[in-house]
């Protein structure tokens, strides 16, 4: 079981309120991602759930049990830290055994769980090494192994992939997703990377300045963002926002259109502009279009290889049903 309910949870450091009262329901077995720009309070929220920070007011219920006053170890949660926080003087085996040793689990049971975790994470041949002799990805797996053996109600991940290089990050992303499918344990994952959020989450929680902007499944957030902030944060490259007469034509203060929902043509279209930078990725090409009279730049995606070049004039046509309309407070109409 791993059902976590936050009720009016509030956190202030002195006079600075980093998390205004906040409610959130996390269901058993869900993969929930907290995402937001840096300083939005997502790590603080995770640390409140973990018990590493005390709530200023409010209640945290884990499996229905009020836990806001419990010390971290009593909450039955396991955490994987950004720096991995492995114990450098202990071998991999002892690192993984440490939480079980603290819980006074029998030696046989400890060995059984270590073997199981090591084989699941491909660590068997590294069990007698020290963390200093491992690569970043291996250390990451040891940190996960140390979390798994406790058989926690939920796993907490604090930006676990941000110290890895790009290729390894994609691999670890898949491994963590697979681990979630296999264990079916609740996982809460903090990241600033919306691609990690989109690819891994069952449910994304978008945060800004300690407030929840929107909660929903990845595609729900992509297709139906509640406000300009979520619209701009989810999706890569960013959604284009257009104000002024063109927005007024659609009865909105601001309209938003994603780069992939604009058709590009060399001969005809609704909007006209000049190509600035063209980013050729092979499968797609992104054009940054200037001088449209709508916004400083409009980003568009064209599929496959496109013959248009820098400085040429192009015509753009937004797909009418994909236009998002926002009122003057930034809320979706």
């Amino acid at each position: 079981m791993g059902q976590i309910t936050l009720k009016k949870v509030r956190k202030a450091f002195g006079d600075v309120e980093v998390i205004p009262p906040l409610d959130l329901q996390i269901n058993d077995g869900e993969f929930v991602v907290f995402v937001g720009p840096s300083g939005c309070g997502k790590s603080t929220l995770l640390r409140l759930i973990a018990g590493l920070e005390d709530v200023s007011s409010g209640e945290i219920e884990i499996d229905g049990r009020p836990s806001a006053e419990l010390p971290p170890a009593k909450r039955g949660l396991a955490m994987v830290f950004q720096s991995y926080a492995l114990y450098p003087h202990m071998s991999v085996r002892k690192n993984i055994a440490f939480p079980m040793k603290m819980a006074k689990i029998s030696q046989d049971e400890q060995n059984r769980r270590i073997e199981a975790a090591a084989s699941a994470l491909n660590l068997t041949e590294y069990l007698d090494r020290k963390p200093g002799q491992l690569s970043g990805g291996q250390r990451q797996r040891v940190a996960i192994g140390r979390a798994i053996v406790r058989e926690p109600a939920a796993f907490l991940f604090d930006e676990p992939l941000s110290n890895l290089d790009a290729a390894l990050r994609v691999g670890m992303r898949l491994e963590i997703s697979e681990l979630h499918k296999r264990l079916a344990t609740t996982m809460i994952y903090v990241t600033h990377d919306q691609i990690e959020a989109m690819t891994m989450a069952d449910k994304i929680v978008v945060l800004r300045a300690g407030r929840i902007e929107q909660v929903g499944a990845p595609l729900e957030l992509y297709e139906n963002p509640r406000n300009i902030f979520v619209a701009g944060f989810i999706g890569s490259p960013r959604m284009n926002f257009i104000e002024g007469p063109e927005a007024a034509r659609h009865n909105a203060h601001t309209i938003g259109i994603r780069p992939e929902h604009i058709d590009v043509s060399a001969t005809e279209g609704d909007w006209q502009g000049r190509i600035g930078v063209a980013e050729h990725l092979g499968s797609d090409t992104y054009f940054h279009i200037h001088d449209t009279g709508l916004a400083e730049t409009v980003t568009v995606r064209a599929s496959g290889e496109v013959t248009l070049r820098h400085g040429e004039t192009v015509f753009l046509t937004p797909q009418a049903e994909k236009i998002h309309r926002f009122d003057n407070e930034g809320l979706k109409q």
Binding site: A50, G51, L52, P71, P72, A73, L77, A78, M79, F81, Q82, S83, A85, L86, Y87, P88, H89, M90, F98, P99, M102, A103, R146, R150
Partner: peptide, 26 residues
């Protein structure tokens, strides 16, 4: 490293165990 102490805290080590297993080796 603060995170090591926090990790030990999450792992269920009390103040004395943290001192014995983390601080002293460090």
């Amino acid at each position: 490293d603060r995170e090591q102490i926090e990790a030990a805290e999450m792992d269920g080590a009390g103040a004395l165990s943290r001192f014995r297993h983390i601080t002293i080796p460090h």
